[in-house]
């Protein structure tokens, strides 16, 4: 390499400099081309932004009800197209998305509800992703006795149906949002750890891991450079598919009085309390469910898009 020209050196320097973020910039570029995934990402980001900014959006007070206006329909869908302001204890108000069983503004409650619902949906899965991946990768990479100890312990948790396990842990810890997050985290660790273990075992048996060991690298370096980038994708895709389950389980816990308590706005809880009004105002009663549906399907489609973007073969 002694007689290369200056131009060669320059291109080589560029190649050297640009190499470190090559893989992830490629993933982002491919994801940006996926219309479905980008739409879903947009919806999720919009909902998260709305939830965070809820107090500053000029919405009605989500806790204040107007008994005279309870179970009001969605004004632009009930045939009358009568979207005029009606009088409430806090002044004239337009119920753009109707009112709930206490006459509270549904739009305000749905947007405020996003704060808790998204939080309870995301945080347990995130916690379980970190802990479950760690357990699964260690079990899969080390194999043998370590694997047996970790995976058999996890199998014990698998013996219980997830809903029952969540209820049991929440019941033992007591009601509250924090406790329901802890219980949901424990519920999601076993499935994530199991996926992580099986993917890691598969990668571990490939020759490039042996080649890396033959290069004299230690277990930590091999996991960091050669195992993580091959296993995190599948685990991440699986974890995002659990977000919807987490939101539904959290709402179930709220319904049983183990999670969020009324009058706190939370989609699962709202769905449960509006259940009785399904014959009077089906559209209003379905709104929290529609939110849960939209968010879960968006997370699933986004995870799908991520998986194909992370696959270097496409």
């Amino acid at each position: 390499m002694s007689n290369v020209s200056a131009a060669d050196v320059a291109t080589q320097a560029a190649a050297l400099a640009g190499n470190t973020q090559g893989y992830w910039s490629g993933v982002i570029r491919k994801l940006a081309r996926d219309k479905v995934a980008m739409t879903c990402l947009g919806i999720i980001l919009l909902l998260i932004a709305a939830a965070i900014l809820a107090p500053w959006l000029g919405l009605a007070d989500p806790y204040r009800g107007a008994i005279a206006r309870r179970l009001r329909g969605i004004c632009w869908l009930d045939g009358t197209l009568d979207c005029a302001a009606v009088s409430t204890p806090w002044g004239p108000h337009i119920y753009w998305l109707g009112g709930d069983e206490q006459g509270r503004d549904m739009l305000a409650r749905l947007i405020h509800g996003g704060r808790l619902s998204l939080f309870i949906g995301l945080l347990p899965v995130l916690n379980a992703f970190v802990i479950g991946s760690l357990l699964g990768i260690v079990a899969g990479y080390r194999g043998g006795t370590v694997n047996t100890m970790i995976m058999r312990t996890i199998d014990v948790f698998y013996a219980f149906p997830s809903v029952l396990l969540a209820i049991a842990i929440s019941g033992a810890l007591g009601a509250g949002i924090l406790n329901s997050i802890v219980s949901l985290t424990i519920v999601f660790i076993p499935p994530i750890a199991r996926v992580a273990e099986s993917v890691t075992t598969q990668v571990r048996s490939l020759d490039f891991v042996d080649a890396a060991r033959a290069s004299g690298a230690g277990a930590f370096t091999i996991i960091r450079v050669h195992v993580l980038n091959n296993v995190l994708g599948p685990i991440f895709v699986f974890a995002t598919s659990l977000i919807s389950v987490s939101m539904i389980l959290a709402s179930g816990l709220s319904f049983l009085g183990l999670g969020t308590k009324p009058p706190e706005p939370e989609w699962g809880l709202m769905l449960n309390t509006l259940r009785t009004a399904i014959y009077q105002q089906p559209l209003v009663a379905a709104l929290p469910g529609a939110m849960i549906f939209m968010v879960s399907i968006c997370f699933n489609l986004l995870s799908d898009g991520l998986r194909s973007a992370m696959d270097v073969r496409t």
């Binding site: 190499n19 490939l206 020759d207 490039f208 004299g216 690298a217 091959n230 270097v312 073969r313």
Partner: peptide
């Protein structure tokens, strides 16, 4: 199977010396 599918080939070759 003996090359990491997620690493560019120059990174695969450079891995040993970096270790």
């Amino acid at each position: 199977a003996s090359l990491n599918p997620r690493l560019t080939i120059q990174d695969s070759i450079a891995f040993g010396p970096k270790v």
